Simulated scan of single mutants.
Amino acid sequence: MVDTREQIEQRLSVLIGVGLSGAGRAADMLTLQFGPLREMTTKHGTVKRVGAWALHIQCTWKIEHANEVFAGSPDFAVSDEATRAKLERIRGLIADNGPFMVERVSVGANGNVSISMSRQLHLSIIADAEPDEEDWRFFDPGSAGKHFVIQGGKVDPWSLT
């Protein structure tokens, strides 16, 4: 039997000491980049900037800065214009107040994760734990390696094969 907490701690431990370098979105999914940004050509021929590690969050999330909620998943569930504006605010925070270095990763039940960074930045991921629904994924962009996926609050067994 797979120990979800142990697997998450093992995978996300590589972020300790690595900086948050970028933010993006795909519809209502938050995408975060960690580590130095580099250019990568996608299979569709477009060039994008990616970090050493990517975290794509489709479940409930919250970013706090200096103990105040700065942004959250409800901000991405509104109009496209409002979502773009909130994303630009997140990008501005990273550019203007960074670097934000990952100091600690704490793992809770059901795939929940708390990532504490320098300069009072904190990311909370609250897995929705809906069966057959992806909560979040962690991977090395551009690598042929499998993505580490939390689905339904548990490690997707496909991630471990």
Rank of each mutant, 00 (worst) to 15 (best):
5 R>I: 13
11 R>C: 02
11 R>T: 09
12 L>Y: 13
12 L>N: 12
14 V>K: 14
17 G>H: 10
20 L>S: 04
22 G>F: 02
26 A>T: 09
27 A>H: 05
32 L>N: 04
34 F>C: 04
35 G>D: 02
35 G>L: 02
39 E>S: 14
41 T>N: 01
46 T>G: 01
47 V>M: 01
50 V>F: 01
55 L>W: 04
58 Q>E: 11
59 C>S: 15
61 W>Q: 08
62 K>I: 08
65 H>V: 13
65 H>W: 15
70 F>T: 10
77 A>V: 06
79 S>L: 07
80 D>L: 07
80 D>G: 06
82 A>G: 00
85 A>H: 05
86 K>I: 09
87 L>K: 13
91 R>N: 14
92 G>D: 12
94 I>K: 01
95 A>T: 12
98 G>I: 11
100 F>A: 03
103 E>H: 05
106 S>V: 10
112 N>I: 04
113 V>G: 05
116 S>D: 11
117 M>E: 04
119 R>M: 03
121 L>C: 11
124 S>A: 13
125 I>R: 10
127 A>L: 07
127 A>Q: 11
130 E>Q: 13
131 P>N: 10
131 P>S: 13
131 P>T: 13
135 D>P: 10
136 W>H: 08
138 F>R: 09
139 F>Y: 15
139 F>P: 01
140 D>R: 15
143 S>L: 06
145 G>H: 08
149 V>Q: 09
151 Q>L: 12
153 G>I: 07
155 V>M: 09
156 D>A: 15
159 S>A: 10
161 T>Y: 04
